[in-house]
Amino acid sequence: MADPSASVRDGHKDLHSEQGGVRGEHPGRAANPLIRVADIAWLEFDKPDLGKAEAFARAFGFGVAQRTPQQLHLRGTDTGGPCVILRSGARSRFGGVAFRAADEVDVLRLADKTGAAVHALPEVIGGVAVQLTDPSGTPVKVVGGLQQLPAQPVQVPQVANTARAGARINATVRPPRVPARVQRLGHVVLQSTTYLKTLDWYLDTLGMIVSDFLYFPGQRDRGPAMSFIRCDRGATPADHHTLALALGPANRYVHSAYQVSDLDALAAGGEYLLERGYVRSWGIGRHIQGSQLFDYWRDPDGFLVEHFADGDLFDNTLEPGWAPFTATGLAQWGPPVTRDFLDAGPRAAGRQAVSMFHALRDDNEFDLHRLRGLLKVATS
Rank of each mutant, 00 (worst) to 15 (best):
L371Y: 15
T379N: 10
Q158C: 10
S281C: 09
P48W: 00
F60A: 10
A41V: 09
P300Q: 06
L108M: 03
T68C: 07
Q158D: 07
G373A: 02
L266I: 08
R9Y: 09
V107W: 00
P224Q: 07
A327V: 13
V37I: 02
L273Y: 15
L273F: 14
P82C: 01
G166D: 11
D221S: 07
P48C: 00
G127H: 01
A225M: 08
P4I: 06
L274W: 15
T133P: 01
L214K: 15
D39L: 08
A244C: 02
L371H: 12
G311R: 07
L185I: 12
W333Q: 13
G345W: 02
A267S: 03
H287I: 05
L132S: 00
Q292R: 09
L72I: 13
V143T: 12
R230G: 13
A31H: 14
M356N: 10
V210N: 12
R184E: 15
R93K: 10
G334P: 08
I209A: 12
Y202G: 08
Y253S: 01
V279W: 08
H307C: 09
A267P: 01
L203I: 09
T133V: 05
L199D: 10
R252S: 02
A31T: 06
T205C: 03
G24K: 05
G61S: 04
P324D: 11
F62P: 14
R286A: 10
G63E: 02
D362I: 05
Q332W: 14
E44P: 12
T138M: 09
P176L: 00
V354I: 01
A57Q: 00
G290Y: 01
A65T: 09
G127A: 09
G269M: 05
R222D: 03
H358K: 03
R29C: 02
D112N: 11
S227Q: 08
A160S: 10
G76H: 01
P237H: 07
R93F: 01
Q289G: 08
D49F: 14
D315V: 05
H369N: 12
L185S: 13
S7Q: 02
V159W: 04
P176Q: 14
L313W: 12
A53S: 11
P217Q: 04
Q352D: 10
T162C: 10
W297K: 14
K141S: 07
E275T: 14
V189Y: 04
Q66R: 11
A129E: 03
V154P: 13
A309Y: 10
D367Y: 08
Y272E: 04
G248H: 06
G218E: 06
Q70N: 14
